[in-house]
Nucleic acid binder design. Structure first.
Length: 602
DNA sequence: CATCCTCCTG
DNA sequence: CAGGAGGATG
């Protein structure tokens, strides 16, 4: 549908048709629109509306509106001051809306089995073929472990036993240091060229199976504080690194035959045997191809970098500050090598993985500097005071600098081709009951899981239960747990959509007419609200693809409301449907079993 | 019948 | 966020 076709010269105009008591006219118009909308045929408008039903729906709608309204008003105290004519938009005349609303005929359980074009759908797992590969991978890992161990030993060597009475500081010291060193590449490697020696703590590592590393908890008592600290760090890092690496390798091997290295997507296309999941056409893409909006996205994408001609609306907003560019500076996670992660030989990747993991949080998602956007935040503060709907902004030229939504740095961590989403339930179930991935399965869900789920929401709004199982290997799934988690996402969605609708309406009340003008930026009100909700503490770098989805959602709401679709009781359904198709792949880091804990130390 | 989704409420 | 209702789907 051509966005321009729904553009209205003024927002008030958009709503005037609702406000005016054109009962008949309005109704037919709506139903027409709906019916001629092929993709959303489910929102068919049964034209049979009884008089009493009208009344019923009037109240119903009123209630609903009131809800949103209160929310909006909380943020937009005096919209009328901005656009005089728009004040009455969806506010005052809401009774008069011909509540042609028929029964809550909302079909479309949206997600359900919309064959998620996404990679993350059910994949068959191929066992057996990978045995050889597994071996190979293990060798590699072991070698790497050996190297690491060498470093460890060097550092671990007791310098002067007498100096260290005992690890009184053990609790805090390591943690502090770890946080400090969190980013850089293996810190200890740098200054560890001395001290040969052995700590019983680590000497046995190699002999035991990897998973046992975790159990080697006794710590060398007589190490100098520095060494002890390093040891502590190392041990933890190694534990997570190894388990993660092993997990990934296993997953890949189990799910993907050896030929996966060269042609990831191909190898999987043939695999998707069951689950009605259609062979993902996305190949390597993160955000799957969104059929409906693909063009829109692409357009936006192609527009990026092209100086927009008339941004008269935006300019006033931005001019007070610095030019847009600073805000657009690529975030840390715009990893350069992310381009060709899949073509890299696996062992290289393996190395990178280990070093990265050991380097801790070198995947750009973790922002150790919470005030990441501090510069812009300070601005937006004052600015938002002036502009209630700061949430939306004209599409800046630099938006979506890296349009390919999935070039996260973490791609380097991603063994699996993006299109390969492990959909099996955890690794515990690995054949042969490998001792690895000694995940401490626990009964219920803890706050860590909730937090993780929220972060996952940045990538997937409609996760399947299988996906959830795959990403929470340390959770013993049962009906209850599954439902609860699904409920979580449902709640997330609710909040998300409410925010979107709110912002869209605000934009409309501000006189915005072109949906393309609406864009969610990191310093926008909307973003802050979302970030606050899903990423309290800011310890995660919100992926750009989420911003794009958010922008899209916003635009869709804008269009719908502008077109008066919101008089249809199920007017949101089409939007839900669209959004449900735009789930992205979730980076591997989020899958690691030990993940929740890692969050809490930051 | 089971599962999931939205909406509403507390 | 959890519960529950009502509806859709397979």
């Amino acid at each position: 549908m051509d966005p321009n076709s729904i553009l209205l010269s003024s927002p008030s105009q958009a709503f005037s048709c609702l406000a005016e008591p054109h009962m008949e006219g309005g109704k037919s118009q709506i139903s027409q629109e709906v019916t001629r909308d092929p993709p959303f045929s489910w929102s068919q408008a049964p034209s049979s509306s009884l008089a009493d039903l009208d009344w019923f729906w009037d109240e119903h709608i009123q209630a609903k509106r009131a809800r949103v309204e209160t929310v909006v008003q909380g943020m937009c105290p005096s919209p009328s001051t901005l656009v005089p004519g728009s004040a009455r938009t969806w506010d005052s005349p809401r009774y008069q809306e011909k509540a042609r609303e028929r029964k809550r005929k909302q079909s479309l359980p949206v997600q359900q089995d919309l064959p998620k074009p996404g990679p993350a759908r059910d994949q068959g797992n191929r066992k057996g073929l990978g045995a050889l590969c597994v071996r190979e991978q293990f060798h590699l890992l072991q070698q790497q472990l050996r190297h690491l161990q060498e470093h460890v030993l060097q550092v671990a060597e007791p310098k002067d036993p007498a100096q260290c009475p005992g690890g009184s500081e053990k609790g805090k010291g390591p943690l502090r240091v770890r946080q400090r060193n969190g980013r850089g590449p293996s810190p200890w490697v740098l200054d560890s060229d001395h001290h040969q020696g052995s700590s019983r703590d680590l000497s046995g590592v190699e002999k035991h199976s990897m998973s046992e590393i975790e159990h080697q908890s006794e710590k060398p008592r007589f190490l100098p504080l520095g060494a002890e600290t390093l040891l502590e760090i190392l041990r933890e890092e190694l534990t997570t690194a190894v388990s993660q690496a092993v997990d990934s390798v296993l997953q890949r091997v189990l799910l993907d035959p050896p030929d996966h290295l060269a042609q990831p997507s191909r190898s999987f296309r043939g695999l998707v045997p069951e689950g009605g999941s259609e062979p993902s056409s996305t190949g390597g893409g993160a955000c799957k191809d969104p059929p409906p909006l693909a063009t829109l996205l692409r357009r936006a994408q192609s527009q990026a970098g092209v100086p927009l001609g008339k941004l008269s609306l935006a300019k006033p907003l931005d001019s007070p500050r610095y030019p847009d560019s600073p805000r657009m500076i690529p975030k840390p996670y715009q990893a350069p090598p992310a381009n060709c992660p899949l073509t890299v030989p696996s062992h290289i990747q393996e190395n990178q993985i280990l070093s990265q993991l050991l380097g801790h949080a070198s995947n750009g998602y973790w922002s150790n500097n919470p005030p990441q956007d501090s510069p812009s935040q300070s601005h937006s503060l004052s600015e938002s005071a002036l502009r209630p709907w700061r949430a939306v902004r004209l599409r800046p030229s630099a938006l979506s600098q890296q349009r390919r939504p999935l070039p996260f740095t973490s791609a380097r961590l991603e063994h699996l081709p993006p299109s390969v989403k492990v959909e099996q339930s955890g690794l515990q179930a690995v054949p042969g009951g490998l001792p690895f991935s000694s995940v401490h399965i626990q009964e219920g869900l803890n706050p860590g899981h909730l937090k993780k789920a929220k972060l996952m929401f940045f990538f997937t709004r409609y996760p399947s239960s299988n996906l959830l199982k795959a990403y929470f290997p340390d959770v013993q799934f049962n009906r209850c747990i599954t439902s609860q988690m699904i409920k979580w996402f449902s709640n997330f969605r609710e909040f998300y959509y409410i925010q979107m609708e709110k912002s869209a309406r605000q934009a409309i009340s501000e006189g915005v007419t072109n949906p393309k003008m609406l864009v969610v930026l990191r310093d926008s009100e909307l973003f802050r609200a979302l970030n606050m909700h899903y990423n309290k503490g800011n310890d995660f770098q919100v992926p750009d693809c989420f911003l794009e989805i958010a922008s899209l959602t916003l635009q869709e709401f804008f269009r719908a409301v502008s077109a008066g679709k919101d008089s249809d009781p199920s007017w949101k359904k089409p939007i839900y449907k669209i959004i449900s198709k735009l789930d992205s792949d979730i980076p591997e880091i989020l899958k690691s079993s030990g993940y929740p804990q890692q969050l809490f130390r930051s």
